[in-house]
Amino acid sequence: MRTKLAQIGRRLLQALPSVIGIIVISFLLTRALPGDPAVYFAGAMADKESIEQVRKALGLDRSWVEQFFIYAGNLAKGDMGMSHNTGRPVAEELLTRLPASLELTLTGLGLAILIAVPLGMLAATRPGSWIDHLCRLLVTAGVSLPTFFTGLFLIYIFYYLLGWAPSPLGRLDILYMPPPHATGFYAIDSLLAGDMETFAATLRQLVLPAVTLCLFALAPIARMTRGAMLGALASDYVRTARANGLTRSKILFTYAFRNAALPVLTTLGMVFSFLLGANVLVEKVFSWPGIGSFAIEALVASDYAAVQGFVLSMALLFVAVNLIIDLVLTLIDPRVGLED
């Protein structure tokens, strides 16, 4: 147990260089701007006076090293600058929109895991069967789908042609009031408030974008599950288990799947990274009021502080997810921390 705690501590420390790297790159991105950063940060509508004000505030008249520490110091205080598009602090804007994006992304990811893992396992245990071929087709087709295209396609079919889905505009139909704020996740909040009608409405809005993301995330997870299961089933230790007459289910779950789960879990980190990107596109397609939409608006309006804040917070979120995955891996894989 002591060694486990030590490993967890070590892993937490290992995240530090990543965080520092992220802050450095994000700092460089702001400073790499061709032209005068102060002009960009002040926004498209700024006059001369406010540009000078921004220059002062950002410390752009000082050395790079100083600028970096000012930047890092501001970050530590949770200050990501002001959004000129909305006139509110970037950090605040991002925080209020984060639950919307997370609700969408996590639902998509959850759906994908629920479908992809059993599918990959089935395919691996029956190589050459129809389910295996289906899995291979889905995997190759899935990674080829542009998410924005899938989203539009689903809208056309389920909203325009069939009329099953509500209009693809936001998290909730305008007929409903958002549930009282507790977690920011409408589905959870409406359940907490006991408002089943709002809950159902939330789900109706959520289904299409979540399915779009799910289709996107399905492929890599199913591919990895299938590959890892195939590898585990062909391994020497599974042969040993068979040679000792263990039952099929014991071999499949205790021996093969637990080993195969490790690379699948590692892949989830990568999938999450892709999902955060795909999320931006899906939010645009479905007019979802999350941070992706916010970032696109900021991009169009050249609102740099907002874009930088968005990139930085997405990266930190991703680091946090990777950290959680690694901690889980540390707990279930005795070998973690001993290689290299």
Partner: peptide, 19 residues
């Protein structure tokens, strides 16, 4: 298998479940 006859293999480290 395992009760009436059993088998051992070469490369024993790979032949045991690593986790």
């Amino acid at each position: 298998r395992g009760r009436e006859f059993s088998m051992i293999f070469q490369n024993p480290r790979a032949a045991l479940n690593p986790i």
